[in-house]
Every structure is written in structure tokens, then in C-alpha cells.
Design a protein around this nucleic acid. Structure first.
Lengths: 191, 191
DNA sequence: GTGCGCATGTAAGAGGTTACATGATTAA
DNA sequence: TTAATCATGTAACCTCTTACATGCGCAC
């Protein structure tokens, strides 16, 4: 994305440890990306090597050393340059959509259930987002608010799409049932 | 995602060459994912090794051999099993959103321009999608229509969000200008 | 006494991209 | 004549995840 700039960007806000960076991303940026320690720590080491960040060790009793990272001027410059470049295209993998696409030959009931599960998951996600929005209310930087808003808008749009689609499938099924009933009621008359 | 199942799924519709699979994905599935030959061919080789697909060589004059792949019963079973598993979470990397988030200290004009560029890109994407929708109209499997619809809905929601956000920033800027004008008009009076 | 929070890291591997190699046919 | 379409593939590389290793303090 690269995560390099995410780390740099967060350190531009305040000095932090790797652990804190990860927590931060999990809390306020999980709609944008996610990181594992296996990515995060090597990035920090590399940024340090390259002089984009500084590190200060805080020795603690009964704990590993806290390594607090802080952005340097070089780091800030690199970040500013990156921000000026036009952003790369979105990289999106929705296994959910792929499965839906490949569900061509599955019975409507199965598809309906699949969509219901997605709706539940999306709804849960939306609630979580709105809680974050409320809990951080006020003392949130504008840009974070915007990003949150974006994700909420996407969730809502998806829910509408899901409801439309499910209604449509439902209607189709009902129609078939009506036809079946016709046949059932017509059959005795033909006897 | 894995791309393995995408390939398997497409071969479940019709026998195809690697080249055709790639074209297909570029045409009707580019909102879901993308593949490079460096991924695609090794996947086909592996599926062949494992007996999930069969391969028939069609020799041609002045061309490389066409290697037509076809799904086997084993492959169909594997695909069906995968389809029954609940889908993994969406994997999303929006560099655009990350940059917006990190744009905290950039001037509103710069941000505004950034958003305008995104709007143009999204609009272009939307037009392209709607053209696909129209050009394939009718003889498109239902599920493909659904997926297309999904992507269109997401684009539209994003455009609305962009417009809302831009109007909001605009309003904020105008307000500041009013204040500035106040100051400007107030200043001579104070002299 | 069990699990969560704090706090660092590494190694192996999965999964993917990019760039390269090859080369004829056909339409603008 | 230039670009696109057809058609296969490999090797080097990048990025990221998963699983592992370590271990105390504190709340329930």
C-alpha cells in the first residue's frame, strides 16, 4: 500500500511503539487496512535503518523494553512526497462476491441464506462503526471522521443492495409457487 | 482468495485456455479481482497435477499450442465444497482512503483537488460498468448481473459521499472567507 | 488459575506481481 | 508500419500472514 507510509503517517501524529501502532490501526483504521506484527516490526526496523524515524528505548521492570519511534525530518519529507503522488487503484478482494458469482447453479434457497449471512455480517460491521463514531465523538480529527463516514456509506449501500436482491429472488420464488399452485388446482379439473 | 477457485469456477462454466480465462476475468470480473499470467499459469499446472482439471492440446499452425482446460468431477466436487464454506472477510486496500486520512495537515484546496480527482476516476469507472451492463444486456447469467449491480451501487454511493464531503469543505471555506471579509471590512472602520 | 493486556521479535511459507522470452497474424 | 490479438511460460522479487518464542502483571 505500502504499509510503510501508514506507519510513517501515524508516527507523524505522535511518537509511538510498534504495539501502539497496531492497536491504533485496529481501532480507527480497520476499514482502511490491517497489519500483523510480522509486517509491522520489519517496517519499523527498516525505517530506522533509513533514517526516516528515530527510536528511544524506555527500560521497564518486568517488561520488554518499550521502543518508542518518532518520525524524523527525512521521514516527514518522504511522507509529504508520497502524499503528493496520485493514489494507486483500490485493491479489493471480496470472496463473498466471487462465491455469489460462482453460485449460478445453486438453488435459490441456498443463495438466499448466503445473502442473509452477508447481511448479518454487514449489519454487525455497521453497528460497530457507528459505535466508534459515537464513542470518539468530537475529539476525532476531521479526516478520520471522513474515512469513517465513507465506510459507513459503503455498508449502507451494500445493505440496500442486499435487500433489493433478496426481495427480487423472493419475488421470483413466489411467482414459481403461484405457477405450481395453478398446476395443482388445474390438475383435478383436467381429470 | 484464492484464485484457484476462480479458475475452477470459470472452467465449470466452459472449457477454456489460460488466455481466455484471463480475458474473461478482465471483462466480466474485474470488479471482483484481477490475475496476471504469473499467477494463472502456475495455478492451471497445479490443478492439472492434482486432477481437478484435464487438458487437451490443440496444435495450430504458426501459433503456440492451445491448451484447453476442462474441469473434472474431482474439480467440481472441490469447487462445490469450497462454495459451501462461509466466505472469508473482504480484503480491501484503498490507498486513496489512506492518503485522505493522512492528509490532516494539508490545505483544504489540496484536499479538494484530491477529491475531485477521485470523483473523476470513480465516474469513469461507473460509466464503464454501465456500458458493460448494457452491452451484455440480456444474455448475461443472473449472478453476473448481481455482481455488476453491486459494483455500480458501490460506485454511486461513493460519488454521493464525495459530493457531500466536497460541499461540506466548500461551505467551511466559504465561512472562513466571510469571516475574512468581515475582518477586511471591519479593519478600515477600526482605523 | 485462566485469559487478557503489555511488548518484543523471527522464520517459513503463501500468494502475488513484474519483467522477461518468443513470435506469427491481422486490422487500422 | 504500428499496434493489438493470439498464446505460452519462467524467474526474481515483494509483501504479507501464520505460527512460533518469551514472559510478567492483573483482574475475574
Amino acid at each position: 500500500m505500502s504499509h510503510r507510509y501508514l506507519v510513517l503517517g501515524l508516527l507523524a501524529e505522535a511518537p509511538m511503539t510498534g504495539y501502539e501502532i497496531k492497536k491504533r490501526i485496529g481501532k480507527t483504521l480497520k476499514s482502511v487496512t490491517s497489519v500483523s506484527y510480522g509486517t509491522l516490526y520489519p517496517i519499523l526496523h527498516r525505517l530506522l535503518d533509513e533514517g526516516a524515524v528515530q527510536m528511544e528505548e524506555q527500560v521497564q521492570a518486568h517488561r520488554p523494553v518499550r521502543k518508542v519511534y518518532q518520525i524524523t525530518e527525512r521521514g516527514q519529507q518522504e511522507l509529504a512526497e508520497w502524499l503528493q503522488q496520485p493514489p494507486g487503484a483500490d485493491q479489493i478482494r471480496r470472496e463473498f462476491l466471487l462465491k455469489l458469482y460462482l453460485a449460478r447453479d445453486l438453488p435459490p434457497d441456498t443463495i438466499q441464506q448466503f445473502l442473509r449471512q452477508r447481511r448479518a455480517a454487514t449489519l454487525a460491521h455497521l453497528n460497530e462503526l457507528q459505535q466508534t463514531q459515537d464513542s470518539l465523538n468530537g475529539n476525532m480529527p476531521l479526516t478520520q471522521h471522513w474515512v469513517n463516514d465513507y465506510t459507513i456509506a459503503m455498508c449502507q449501500a451494500e445493505l440496500q443492495w442486499l435487500n433489493r436482491l433478496m426481495a427480487q429472488i423472493e419475488a421470483n420464488l413466489a411467482e414459481h409457487n403461484v405457477i405450481s399452485e395453478h398446476l395443482v388446482s388445474a390438475t383435478p379439473a383436467q381429470r
